[in-house]
Computed example of a mutant assay.
Amino acid sequence: MLKKYLNNNQRRILTALILTGILSVASGLTVVQNATGASANLSLETSNEVIKDNIKLNRLPRPVAKAVLRDLARRQGILTRQLQIIDYNQQTWRNGCLELPQPDEFCSQALIPGWRIVVSDGKENWIYHTNNNGRSLRLASAKNPSDNLPAKLPPSVKNAVLQAASKRLQQPISQLTIIQAEQQTWSNGCLSLPRPDENCTEAIDSGWRVVVGAVDQTLVYHTNQTGSAVRLNEKASNSTLSPVQIPASELPPPLDRDIVFRQISSGGFTGRTYETVLLKDGRLIRVRIGDANDSERSVRRVSAQQVQQFVRSLERFKFSKFQNLSYPAPSGAADYITYTLTSQEGTVRYNDISQNNLPKNLQTVVKAWNQIVVSAQ
């Protein structure tokens, strides 16, 4: 009886264990299914939340998205919640205008990392170009993507100009940007750019003036209407360099109150750095940076009248408009001297190789400064 009882009891225990295992497995499956369902729901909810917030979790920074939505809402007079970012991708814009220059706007040729963003209200789409943090943004177009040209430049002209610029600069077309295009009427058949000893027809010819931007240079082209005739305006191309912003980390300290102007020169064959300052009292002090014994210090003077004339030159030729701009040397250049000029209103940087290609006003300021240095006694 005891044996039978034990056997029966064992069978019941075994049966209970088996049933418990089955239930556990079933329960486990239910848990897995529930977990899977929860995961799917979470993914869906997350996706919906992404769409609602107009941000993909691992890419577009929230400040950039908010800046774009606020700008478009203001332009359209609607609420931001009526707008949705439907697409975006990272871009590196080839100029400071984010490849969307305004008419007659000068664009620095700095490479600007940022975003291309498409916003929709369900009826229309808008395309934005921004920098990395959204503090700089521009509306490209509504409804359809734009080719980003400031004028309706014919494709044949665009292609002809880009091919000419690519050949001249030895750069791929992908590294070039048309930053300005305007219709022109040329005074002769040579597109107003006659070559030496060339006979040009006196017929008035219509066409285009196109400005092409590269990383460190701009080229100005004259064309006819179709692009079958293209000529480089060398004088206009060489008259200015495309500046870039001086990184904040490379800006020198501001001037003390008693200093009118400062020049820091560095590089060249010697690689030495010199600082020259003009004080209000007419003293011109030059030292070599890193000279522990101060053995190369020199102190000279100019008259109070010369100081006043120089200050007026800074104001007259608007030195402040070049604030924090750098005019870089051509690609591949070596052993050049970099000059950093600072007034009470700002800093500009250039080099001896490109000095003759600086904007005219800046060249005039540089000339006035050199005259101060030469005349000091």
Rank of each mutant, 00 (worst) to 15 (best):
R135I: 07
R135D: 09
R135L: 06
R135F: 02
L137E: 06
R138F: 00
R138V: 10
L139I: 06
S141K: 03
S141W: 01
S141E: 07
K143D: 12
K143P: 12
K143G: 15
K143F: 14
P145A: 14
S146G: 12
D147T: 01
N148Q: 12
N148K: 10
L149A: 02
L149V: 02
L149M: 07
L149S: 01
P150C: 12
A151E: 04
A151H: 04
A151L: 03
K152I: 15
L153F: 01
P154A: 03
P155K: 10
S156I: 05
S156P: 05
S156M: 01
V157K: 00
V157F: 04
K158F: 12
N159V: 05
V161G: 06
Q163Y: 02
Q163N: 05
Q163L: 06
A164V: 03
S166W: 11
S166R: 08
K167I: 14
R168V: 12
R168W: 13
Q170A: 13
Q170C: 14
Q171S: 13
P172R: 09
S174A: 12
S174C: 11
Q175R: 11
Q175D: 11
L176W: 00
L176E: 01
T177S: 13
T177H: 11
I178F: 02
I178Y: 02
I178N: 07
I178M: 08
I178W: 04
I179C: 14
I179F: 15
A181V: 05
A181D: 01
Q183L: 14
Q183Y: 10
T185C: 09
W186K: 01
S187I: 09
S187E: 13
